[in-house]
């Protein structure tokens, strides 16, 4: 299996890059080499140079430094969103598919309703009234994302719950919780996780979009979308603070979609699910 993954050059490169990003994201705040918020008005709006490889922003803050710090922000929030929405989605999808009947109908309806909101609009509205902050951002995006996983999970459970091993577990008298935990979830969660991997790109884009609009995180947390938003005022004279954060977002999203889609190709070659997102 790992052989199959590393035989693909694009996946190998993406996984290495992701590993690098994760290392940066974890070590950066720990190392605290230099403060990404350090203001230096004498050196503002600089073009890339040896001292500031990607230039400085309108407050003289080093762009590379802030981009690196932004990695921590984006990846940790995305991880939080994925964890919560996967947990909720898998749980609700599993209950819905397993019990069927009125429970399924109700839950499916709820899932449909959540899917009928354009995600970003919904998240925006929630954030608008909850106010900014890391926890609120994670909650708002989780509210938007869980339904997709729930729907996929429900489908998976429906297709495997008639299998012999599930039926025989029932006959032995295994409890519902046991069946879900031991049989249904382990046998269907892979597909959902693959979708979630592809989806991390969308989560990252949503984080950036909300912060770009100014409804995400407080100003002292470096974040790529917020950097873009602040930088755009200075686009005429110093375009770097607009260009580089966007490239950073694009790169990370590409990494996740290559990994996610690659996993999907390897594990369910017949399914084209992710492309429809």
């Amino acid at each position: 299996m790992t052989g199959k993954i590393f035989r693909r050059k694009d996946m190998t490169i993406s996984i290495l890059l992701l590993a690098l990003l994760v290392v940066v994201a974890i070590s950066y705040p720990l190392l605290a080499l230099s403060d990404p918020n350090a203001i230096d008005l004498t050196n503002k709006n600089l073009a890339p140079s040896a001292e500031h490889p990607l230039g400085t922003d309108y407050l003289g803050r080093d762009i590379l430094n802030r981009l690196a710090a932004g990695t921590t922000t984006s990846l940790s929030i995305a991880a939080g969103v994925s964890a919560i929405s996967l947990f909720v989605g898998v749980l609700i999808g599993c209950i819905s598919g397993y019990y069927g009947g009125i429970i399924d109908e109700t839950l499916s309806r709820i899932i449909d309703i959540f899917l009928s909101f354009p995600g970003i609009v919904f998240a925006l509205a929630i954030m608008g009234f909850l106010g900014g902050g890391v926890i609120n951002l994670i909650l708002a995006l989780s509210v938007v994302h869980w339904a997709k996983y729930a729907r996929l999970m429900r489908g998976q459970v429906l297709s495997i719950k008639e299998n012999e091993y599930v039926l025989s577990a029932k006959i032995i008298g295994a409890g519902d919780f046991h069946i879900m935990r031991k049989h249904l979830i382990p046998n269907s969660v892979a597909t959902v996780i693959i979708l979630a991997t592809i989806d991390i790109g969308h989560v990252l884009l949503s984080i950036a979009a909300l912060n770009f609009l100014g409804i995400g995180l407080p100003a002292d947390i470096p974040e790529w979308g917020a950097m873009l938003s602040a930088g755009k005022e200075f686009m005429r004279t110093s375009p770097y603070q607009t260009i580089f954060p966007g490239m950073a977002i694009t790169m990370v999203v590409i990494i996740f979609s290559i990994i996610g889609e690659g996993l999907r190709d390897i594990f369910d070659p017949n399914d084209t699910g992710g492309e429809y997102l």
């Binding site: 790109g201 884009l205 979009a209 979308g225 686009m235 607009t242 966007g246 977002i249 590409i254 979609s257």
Partner: peptide, 22 residues
């Protein structure tokens, strides 16, 4: 297309402004 689905729309907007307007 990999770039197309991965670039943030608002960034594309800004870059377009930068190129075609500025």
């Amino acid at each position: 297309t990999l770039f197309g689905v991965s670039m943030p729309g608002f960034w594309v907007g800004l870059i377009l402004i930068l190129i075609f307007s500025v």
